[in-house]
């Protein structure tokens, strides 16, 4: 497992050294927080903790988007030629893909934690147990969507196609999850899509923890868009956690398998510059 650790360490170093990317991951969520807290003020007047409700959604979205985009590290490795150094090393494909998924998760959890720290200054109140649970859910989100991201990157194998695919996946999933816009104020005809979106359940379990809703009655949870009553079938945050875990395992398996059999030998490598 030494090689997996080495890949994680290397990807972390690369992430930290890219100052622009680092700044972007802090500024983007803050920008969203600013915009949506204004936009949603009137719409969210019925919520118990409107600001924290929004903050929780934005934190978990940062982890989601971060894990998808961080798994593109492999695409820049292909473009820069470094991928060949990894491919001819005496390490297995599985070690490489697991290393990339792990580093995408670690980085996105760090991004989420950074935002959590800032949120503590704004007014989010947490105790250590809740924070630990939040980290757990963030890590689960990181592995799940890091796997999906790497799966898509392996299938597309170049940045241009990945951009298109990830735009198609990321945008609708984000907006139909209730993270930015509460699902309770969404039009009825969109609700089937909301129910089909795995991010919906990820968002609800994360809100459930960070807003300390463990003593809130189920009816109130449904009212706040943290639990869902689909024609009498109740999806509690706990069930949502199970759904996310299941999707995560499926994609982890699919991703590792896809990466094991992918042929990277004919990938065009940029010519050496002198």
């Amino acid at each position: 497992m030494n090689a997996v650790g080495a890949i994680v360490k290397r990807n972390l170093l690369n992430f930290v050294r890219d100052k622009g990317q680092l700044l972007g991951t802090i500024l983007m969520p803050l920008f969203f927080l600013f915009i949506f807290s204004f936009l949603m003020k009137s719409a969210m007047s019925g919520f118990a903790q409107p600001m924290n409700y929004l903050i929780a959604g934005i934190i978990i979205m940062t982890v989601f988007q971060g894990s998808i985009s961080n798994s593109t590290a492999i695409l820049s490795d292909i473009a820069s030629g470094f991928m060949r150094e990894i491919l001819v090393a005496p390490i297995s494909r599985t070690q490489i893909s697991v290393g990339h998924i792990l580093s995408a998760s670690v980085i996105s959890v760090l991004q989420g934690l950074l935002l959590t720290l800032i949120s503590l200054l704004i007014g989010l109140r947490l105790d250590p147990i809740h924070l630990a649970e939040m980290i757990g859910v963030m890590a689960l989100a990181g592995v799940t969507f890091g796997s999906i991201g790497l799966f898509l990157a392996t299938v597309s194998r170049n940045s241009a196609s990945f951009q298109i695919i990830s735009a198609i996946v990321v945008m609708p999933f984000t907006f139909l999850s209730g993270a930015y816009i509460p699902t309770t104020i969404m039009p009825k005809f969109l609700m089937p899509l909301v129910y089909l979106n795995p991010l919906t359940y990820l968002t609800s379990i994360f809100r459930f923890i960070s807003l300390k809703m463990e003593h809130t009655p189920t009816a109130a949870l449904v009212q706040e868009g943290v639990a869902y009553n689909i024609h009498g079938f109740l999806i509690t945050p706990g069930l949502g956690l199970l759904i996310t875990l299941l999707i995560g395992l499926v994609f982890l398996f699919l991703c590792v398998r896809q990466f094991d059999k992918a042929d990277f030998s004919n990938v065009k490598v940029a010519a050496r510059r002198h």
Binding site: R10, L13, N14, R17, D18, S80, G81, F82, M83, R84, E85, V269, A270, A271, R272, R273
Partner: peptide
């Protein structure tokens, strides 16, 4: 072609 990690 170069296969170094340029950021390291």
């Amino acid at each position: 072609e170069s296969t170094l990690d340029e950021k390291l």
